[in-house]
Design a protein around this nucleic acid. Sequence first.
DNA 1: ACCTGAACACCGTTCAAGT
DNA 2: ACCTGAACACCGTTCAAGT
Lengths: 236, 236
Amino acid sequence: MPVPAQRTRPGPRRALTEDQILDAALTLLDAGGANAASVRAIAAQVGVAPNAVYTYFPDKAAIVKALVERLLGQVDHGVFIDRDQPWRQRVEALALELRERLSAHPGAVPLLIGGPMDGPHALALNERLLELLADAGLNPTDAARASYLLIVYVFGSIALEVADLPQPGPLPPESERIDTRLDAFTATPAEHYPRTAAAAAAMAGYISTEQYLWGLRRMLDGITASTTAHTEAAGV
Amino acid sequence: MPVPAQRTRPGPRRALTEDQILDAALTLLDAGGANAASVRAIAAQVGVAPNAVYTYFPDKAAIVKALVERLLGQVDHGVFIDRDQPWRQRVEALALELRERLSAHPGAVPLLIGGPMDGPHALALNERLLELLADAGLNPTDAARASYLLIVYVFGSIALEVADLPQPGPLPPESERIDTRLDAFTATPAEHYPRTAAAAAAMAGYISTEQYLWGLRRMLDGITASTTAHTEAAGV
DNA sequence: ACCTGAACACCGTTCAAGT
DNA sequence: ACCTGAACACCGTTCAAGT
């Protein structure tokens, strides 16, 4: 998003900024879920007529795109940029940081995965991940494939988690979270789906972060197993 | 089917079936993308007034739910139910079959991942996957975690693939597919994102099924690596 | 029981006009 | 340049009425 040139200075009054509109959209998303951020609701939130929004963004898709970029920009790179840390730990830090940032706004998640993530912040994150995998000793092809695998996992996990949520609004603390998925499985007649019922029982004690990290580590195991020669040389 | 007599006059008799409504929804989805299957468009497609649809389904969510169930029900279990096959091959067959069925209706994918998949067909698929993982020698806890990991991967892959699609409508053959993601990466200035640009170059020759299977195999590697003792005993 | 027209409360977006 | 009211073409859903 380029900085507007200084020559086009005020007209009668500039009542808003792009950021205020994105703030309003996010507030609505957090309170009412993915469908709550209508252009009209955003306009009402910031106190203008619906069509005034189109002074700042060409259409709703542009608002969504800018919002997605903003969320990805909030990811703290510090936690996984440190090359002195073991690379697996850095991947875990990245995965946890992304998950935490996105879980903070479940209503925005469907917008995230609803379109291509090709903005500058998305590309910057991808770049960091590729650096990380290069540090791990992967060649460019393996790094590219592994990065896509990890991205699918991170966003897929969050998307399915949000999809299983019973209602819009902020995520409750993990300990109190009601998981529709586990609910459905637990309510499943064991005579029809014995293994699903058993799996629900086996998983009942676990929290989702644990499951998330378990999956992530299995993927890292698989990635390193296929590229052992390189990882040995890379150290740590 | 003979030429339909014009019973456009209000008839007390049942003019439709639930299946016809789902057929219409799927047709619209395939032609116009995820937003094309409005209740009003469905009604128009089957030749009734919009509110007549509510005789068959209580609301739009019920239509979506039934449609998702129907799509999952079309998955052919035969390809991965055969216990004489090596279990990894069975997992791959399941993953490929699911991907093929869902890719046939890209417009329906956002509806798939937009809500919980807890219908009978979804549970049946989960049950088959757990059987498969039990055959591989995993204990119930590992099987539950591994199955969720695999589900996240399969649906996450398809969701991201659809999200990167430029246009609604049917998926073109894989060889002619335009991938917004790769496009964005290729168009990326190499001076800002050198590794992303390199990754795009490295991946340019690959087709997505190859990437899909690569990721799947890395996950299976990681799963077996963490449960070696069991897999040895399970044979194959 | 099934379908209808009409209506309600929404939606994204465009347009002409006012400042 | 920025904002407005009004309008257009949608949307899901409800209601009373007709068969």
